[in-house]
Amino acid sequence: MSDNLARHFLLREDVVFLNHGSFGACPRPVFETYQAWQLELEREPVDFLGRRLNELMRVPREALAAELGAGAGDIVGLTNATTGLNIVAQSLDLKPGDQILTTDHEYSALEKTWAYVCRKTGAEVVVAKIPMPLVNEAQFTDAILAGMTGRTRVLFLSHITSPTALIFPIERAVAEARRRGIWSVIDGAHTPGHLRLDLDALGADFYSGNCHKWLMTPKGSAFLYARPEVQHLLNPLVISHGWTAKSKEPGASGAFGNSPFIDEVEMQGTRDPSAWLSVPSALAFRREHDWDGVAAQCRALAQETAMRLAELTGLDLLSAPEFCAPQMVAMALPDCDTAEIHRTLFDTYRIEIPVFRWQKTCIARLSVQGYNSRAQMDRLIEALTELLDLRSPARQAAR
């Protein structure tokens, strides 16, 4: 798998890169498309940004919408998922006493976003503790529904969690939120290209995801989805040429002939749209290389590696396989100095992988992408075995 596919990527050969989940890695042909767009922009900036941009932005929007099971008028191109989720969080009309229901597995930047919103509005965050290990859908949904009250205004969930690499089975919780009149806001930073998405069928009010991770587009390409019925609730973070005073009126058009949702959110002043314009190239690369087949191989290798480490540590997996992200797995480690393990893995073994403490659990979060190999997994297991002294008699006895 990797010998053939690794040549398509720009990653350093002296580093075992097992951290695709943080920022992704862009294939060479897609990166070349990205650079071609940048060059075209620089050759005639006024024509590119002043005359052609509206039509240029439409092409990736339509291509991505088809990939995600959404209407082309229901997504906008942004630089990252955090921006999209901030647009939603800072737009919703929250008041003192309102509650934002979320979980104890959320991404720290978004925890800060909701804390900021609460400070401004007087709303409060309610955290549902998800029982671990996650082994069935009801276990998750029951914990969420138990946290819903008459004061719950927002349900904020990750689709794939960042620290624990779990797939949350969000469908029933989203449906119940809709039934109760609760806005559902989904953090899909890790989902596009990782799971098959049908956003219209899911029915979440708002969903933001990154393209630069598992879709393998250049950095700075993401999207925000909003159901047509709730698009009028959103305000842009930046007021620029796309805004009109009549944007909240029924049937209003944006400044450039699209919906106010598209024109107000996508137009943020001068910015380089080349990463977003490269989305169709990334989709084509995935089709050309049968990425569904590649992903299946990656999933098998990720699960195999997690099982190998669990056998050495004697520690339980964090979930049943069906609730583990397909190409990303959070592997529990014995109690250790996670910062030191992380540093030594890179400095001594040239392995790039996040190692951190989540609540009381030490974790190494493994990503497996098409450029990785079983030999690299062997190198990781050997390094962790040495650093954590996993074969020592004392460690074996402790198991």
Rank of each mutant, 00 (worst) to 15 (best):
E266C: 09
F17T: 00
P192G: 13
E266L: 11
A222V: 01
P260F: 10
E124V: 03
L10C: 14
A255I: 03
L56H: 11
P192K: 07
T344W: 04
A398C: 09
A282M: 12
H241C: 14
F285K: 12
Q327L: 05
P29A: 07
G24K: 07
R180H: 01
L277D: 09
Q327C: 13
N235K: 12
L18F: 06
M132E: 14
T313K: 10
N19L: 10
T344I: 03
A245I: 07
E304D: 15
L18C: 11
N80V: 04
L315M: 15
D14W: 07
R227V: 10
A143Y: 05
R227N: 03
H194Y: 10
D93S: 14
A252E: 10
R343I: 01
S278D: 11
E264F: 11
E229L: 09
R391M: 07
D200T: 10
G209R: 01
L388T: 08
D3N: 08
F206P: 05
D316H: 11
E171C: 04
A325H: 05
D205V: 02
P163Y: 09
M267Y: 10
T217W: 03
P236H: 08
L283T: 04
V126S: 09
G147R: 07
A189M: 12
A394L: 13
G181M: 03
Q38M: 13
Q376E: 15
P260W: 11
L315V: 14
T149P: 00
S259H: 06
Q35T: 09
G242T: 01
A189V: 08
T121P: 09
M331S: 06
A302S: 01
L366I: 12
D316S: 13
A189F: 13
M307N: 13
S373R: 11
I87V: 14
Q376K: 04
A115Q: 15
L155I: 03
G21Q: 08
L39D: 07
D3E: 12
A282Q: 06
Y207Q: 03
G242D: 06
L195A: 05
H194T: 10
V15L: 07
V125S: 02
Q327T: 14
E266R: 15
A306F: 02
T244D: 12
W183D: 05
F346Y: 12
A165Y: 06
H8N: 13
S2R: 07
L85E: 01
A222N: 08
R308F: 04
D205R: 02
W276A: 14
V294F: 08
F356C: 08
R28I: 12
R395D: 06
D187F: 08
A36P: 01
R151F: 09
S91Q: 08
C118T: 11
R28S: 09
C298G: 03
L157T: 01
S162T: 15
A306Y: 02
V76P: 02
S247G: 05
D337T: 08
H212L: 07
L224W: 02
F285A: 04
M267W: 14
A143S: 14
C26G: 04
L166T: 03
G254R: 07
L390A: 10
